[in-house]
């Protein structure tokens, strides 16, 4: 699988660009993964990325989009816990893009 080097650190991604080893993740790598997705990370993006990492840490899965929006609404408020807001941040799908940037594995059941 392809190896990538960012800020002097080497890590592996799979053929779709997902980080292979969750433990490799750091903010520089997130920056690289975001660049690959053509997403410019703002504070609002980080909020979602960090939320996903926390969710994964607790449940060991990436949440389905419906579950993600609901959980974000609960934690960050209804103005952020909705599809419109999340798709504005991650135009090609919060599930795919935000998970990838967060260094999570390819989500379960993602077709």
């Amino acid at each position: 699988m392809p190896m990538v080097e960012v800020a002097g650190k080497e890590f592996e991604v799979d053929e779709e660009g997902y980080l292979v080893n969750l433990a490799d993740w750091d903010e520089n790598i997130a920056g690289y993964l975001a660049q690959e997705e053509k997403v410019e990370l703002t504070e609002n993006h980080w909020e979602v990325v960090n939320f996903l990492r926390e969710y994964y840490g607790e449940y060991q899965i990436a949440p389905a989009i419906r579950v993600l929006t609901k959980a974000i609404a609960k934690k960050l408020g209804a103005d952020k816990g909705n599809n419109k807001y999340l798709y504005e941040l991650f135009p090609y799908g919060p599930a795919k893009q935000a998970c990838k940037i967060a260094g999570l594995p390819k989500p379960t059941g993602c077709i």
């Binding site: 990436a62 389905a64 989009i65 599809n83 989500p107 059941g109 077709i111």
Partner: peptide, 8 residues
């Protein structure tokens, strides 16, 4: 997780 499958 699936972006497209969020159908109602």
């Amino acid at each position: 997780m699936n972006d497209e499958m969020d159908m109602e």
